[in-house]
């Protein structure tokens, strides 16, 4: 079973290929639909195109050919101004957290609201809410270097969540974390997915994927080689 059909996809790729200027073909003729509220793992070895696929969805990359839709919008043809609109509705989490080292957890999360013009009086409440939701209550005044890796990743997830995104993208979110912490972070992402947000997680973590029994999209050399509704890392159904 190589394709999953979805009625109203949150994410839709139609025959997407991406070729980098150095000639590397990161994605080759990829087509996939992901429905609203789905939780999907994207697996595959390094260089298989996982990160490129995510980058297409927050318009860090544009397809060389084919079309990419997020919530029905053709993101490849967005103007610069519209890209910032898209990014306000798509949260992104990275392996290396990408926090600002000289700002507290609170300030790091609030930053995402401030720079998008949210009125100051609304910021505090929303940041405190999302910090509580990500298990960081009481840690708001800590700087990143005072937090554990897992806590730092929670801050970065809180920052991605604070605008209530329709889509959450996580690129190797547990790559720098020990197994227990990884499991906690994955639980948090699953909770977020249960709240209605579409969640895409690119990962190497075989054990985690096997344990979660979610939809698994397997990439190899820029092609989709497996798409299973309840799958294992290997691409086989549970």
């Amino acid at each position: 079973m190589l394709a999953v059909f979805v009625a109203n996809p949150m994410v839709k790729l139609e025959n997407v290929s991406v070729t980098y200027p150095n000639g590397v073909q990161a994605l080759k003729d990829v087509s996939v639909d992901i429905g609203a509220g789905e939780f999907v793992f994207i697996v595959g070895p390094t260089g298989s195109g996982k990160t490129t696929l995510l980058k297409l969805l927050y318009r860090e990359e544009t397809p060389t050919s084919g079309r990419v839709y997020v919530d029905g919008v053709d993101v490849g043809s967005l103007k610069r101004r519209e890209v910032s609109e898209l990014r306000r509705r798509v949260g992104v989490v990275f392996q290396d957290f990408r926090l600002l080292p000289d700002r507290t957890a609170f300030e790091n999360v609030a930053f995402a609201l401030h720079v998008t013009g949210t009125p100051r009086r609304m910021v505090r409440q929303r940041v405190m809410d999302v910090l509580a939701r990500t298990g960081l209550a009481g840690r708001e005044h800590s700087f990143p270097h005072e937090l554990s890796g897992g806590e730092q990743q929670r801050v970065s997830i809180a920052r991605a969540l604070v605008r209530n995104p329709m889509l959450l993208l996580a690129d190797e979110p547990t790559g720098n974390l020990d197994p227990n912490t990884s499991w906690e972070i994955m639980q948090l992402l699953e909770e977020i997915g249960a709240g209605g947000t579409t969640v895409l997680v690119a990962t190497h973590d075989r054990e985690m994927v096997d344990r979660m029994r979610r939809r698994v999209l397997s990439l190899s050399n820029g092609r989709i080689v497996g798409d299973v509704v309840q799958g294992r890392y290997s691409g086989e159904p549970v």
Binding site: Y58, R80, R81, S84, E85, L86, R87, R88, R89, V92, R98, L100, F111, A112, V115, T116, G117, R159, R163
Partner: peptide
């Protein structure tokens, strides 16, 4: 540059940055 990249990531407009 880190701050600017994060601003772009979370959807700040060019004008704001």
């Amino acid at each position: 540059r880190r701050e600017i990249r994060i601003m772009q990531l979370v959807g700040a407009t060019d004008g704001f940055i």
